[in-house]
Computed example of a mutant assay.
Amino acid sequence: MTMQEVDELEEWFKNVELPKPPVMLFPGTQIADVDKFLEAQFTSLRVDPNSKPNAPILYRLKAFKLLIESNL
C-alpha cells in the first residue's frame, strides 16, 4: 500500500458517518472508541504502510470500511 492509498483511505473515513460504538468488527473484536481506533491504526500505517506487522491493521481498516458500506 502506498502513502497515497493510506491518505485516500483515511480521507474516506473522515467523510463518512461513523457508527456509534461499540462496534463489533469480528467475533471477539469490539471497537469501543471509533475515533481512537482509527487514529491508532493510521498512525501505525503512516510509519511504514508496507511492513508485515501492518498487514493486520490494513485488514481491520478494510473490514471496518466494508462494514460501514454495508450499512449505508
Rank of each mutant, 00 (worst) to 15 (best):
R46E: 07
N71L: 09
R60N: 14
Y59E: 12
R46Y: 13
N50E: 15
L18A: 08
D33H: 12
L58S: 06
E17F: 05
P49S: 08
V16R: 10
E39C: 01
I57Q: 05
I68R: 01
K20E: 15
L58C: 02
V6K: 02
E17A: 13
D33G: 03
S51I: 09
P21Y: 03
E17P: 00
K20M: 11
A40H: 06
K65V: 02
Q30A: 09
V34M: 10
S51E: 14
R46N: 07
N54Q: 09
K36V: 12
S70V: 01
L45T: 04
F42L: 01
F37N: 01
A55R: 13
Q41P: 00
Q4R: 13
D33I: 02
P19F: 08
P49E: 06
A32I: 04
K52C: 00
L66V: 00
K20A: 14
E5R: 11
D48N: 15
E69V: 04
L38A: 06
L66C: 01
K20T: 15
D33T: 01
P53G: 04
R46T: 05
D7S: 13
V47P: 00
F64M: 04
N54P: 06
P19R: 03
I57P: 00
R60S: 10
P49I: 08
K36M: 11
E10R: 08
V34H: 04
E5Q: 15
A32T: 11
R60E: 15
I57C: 04
R60G: 03
P53F: 10
M24C: 03
M1V: 13
M3Q: 14
A32K: 10
E17K: 13
K62M: 12
K52L: 13
M1Q: 07
L67H: 08
A55N: 06
K65M: 09
T29K: 14
V47I: 15
R46D: 07
D48W: 02
V47L: 12
E17I: 08
N15M: 03
Q30D: 01
P21L: 04
L38Q: 03
N71D: 10
N50I: 07
W12M: 03
N15R: 07
